[in-house]
Design a protein around this nucleic acid. Structure first.
Lengths: 218, 218
DNA sequence: GGCGAAGCGGAAAACGTCTTCCGTTCCAGT
DNA sequence: ACTGGAACGGAAGACGTTTTCCGCTTCGCC
């Protein structure tokens, strides 16, 4: 119990070369995941990093652990986007900003997109989705609705799902094709006099996560 | 050349048991594909049909062949939907009908959805997409636009992509959740005075197919 | 510099699918 | 009924990944 002078738990301080490799793996994995998604083989990461697969497995026996190490900070960026969006004078504009900026991040990094959707390690995703983003978005939505700018019958889960599908809308010739469909969506989201209410109700939070995972994997 | 009294090519008439099995495979594959998609293993089909895998491979060495045999008629249904939609008095309503009915089909049959997207055997998909559905939709769109009911800057590829992403919007608790988002989309598609034009341009037909395939596979 | 242990690389085992192959079974024509 | 060959089943082989394992290297403390 007292063998370590480290922080809290019994974490041995990792030998110099090992620490260097750990960073190397993280940096390489970031690139590989951004390009090929979270299911990229360890082989590919190892090859690009110029080290053996064994080394990658030793440091990150669980892929989820590697994913967490990589994306915890990236996800904070998204939370920051939401926070900034919530400060917008006009709540509808805030929503538009949030969607636009989050999409820009997700489209640029396939790994991030998959993380946000909970493709790997649901707990991380739930944590940010439910505990961090959820409240911010909900209050933004509520504000926009009482301002009469956002249609009254959409919820946070609706936005989440739309965000999720938009993030795949990108082709080499038009990498930001998603902007086109985001504009279309925003037009649909705007409150208008005499508007028919949407059919059905916004899906449950839990069900939304399940759907997102299914969309991703299949 | 004259050994067969069959139709056209030199197709040997298939032994009775083989013919029975062929039908059995088709029926079983229809169910399996509807449930698990086109990538379902032959193993699963064979097991459910109560026959050996070898039999399935012998009859359909190419998966694409099995897919074609199964979905050629299903796809005609979609074309028929489009034709009926084109007869609608109001062109915008026609578009709405087409989207709604096609989605209902696709959501009920994952295999059909994947075929429409060209996940297997691109040629079949292209054939129907480009040669059959394309013209019908395009004229419908044009009509709706000159009526001033559909916004002027959307194209057939835009609708195709939206259709494609909507078809995944379904959860056990709300199997027709897609109707909710279709309603939202239709609201966005409607022409309105003083509307900002959408950013970018509708994607090329070819690029659209590529994107659809990517969306599917990954 | 020497020593013990942590760390490394990558060959090989384990695994999960997809595909083939061949001994046996069953049909159809005589 | 008999026979030739088409068709069957499913075990065995091929294949692409993922994961482990162990002989050798490197580090860091004495």
């Amino acid at each position: 119990m007292d063998t370590e002078s480290g922080s809290g738990c019994a974490e041995r301080p990792l030998r110099r070369d090992a620490a260097r490799n750990r960073e190397l793996i993280l940096a390489t994995a970031a690139a590989v995941f951004a390009e090929h998604g979270l299911e990229a083989g360890y082989e590919e990461i190892a090859r690009r990093a110029g080290i053996g697969v064994g080394t990658v497995y030793r440091r990150f026996p669980e892929r989820a652990e590697l994913v967490r190490a990589l994306f915890e900070s990236r996800i904070e960026e998204v939370v920051a986007i939401a926070e900034r969006a919530a400060e917008q004078e006009d709540a509808f504009t805030g929503i538009a900003c949030f969607l636009e900026q989050t999409l820009a991040h997700q489209v640029a990094d396939r790994g991030l997109q998959e993380v946000m959707v909970g493709a790997i390690s649901q707990d991380v995703h739930r944590m940010i989705g439910r505990e961090r983003l959820g409240p911010i978005l909900e209050s933004l939505i509520e504000r926009a609705q009482s301002d009469g700018t956002l249609r009254a019958d959409v919820g946070a889960t609706d936005l989440g799902l739309q965000l999720m599908v938009m993030s795949s809308m990108s082709i080499p010739a038009q990498p930001d094709l998603w902007r086109r469909y985001l504009a279309l969506l925003l037009d649909g989201l705007r409150a208008r006099p005499g508007q028919e209410p949407l059919p059905l109700v916004a899906p449950e939070t839990e069900a939304t996560y399940v759907l997102m995972c299914n969309l991703q994997r299949r």
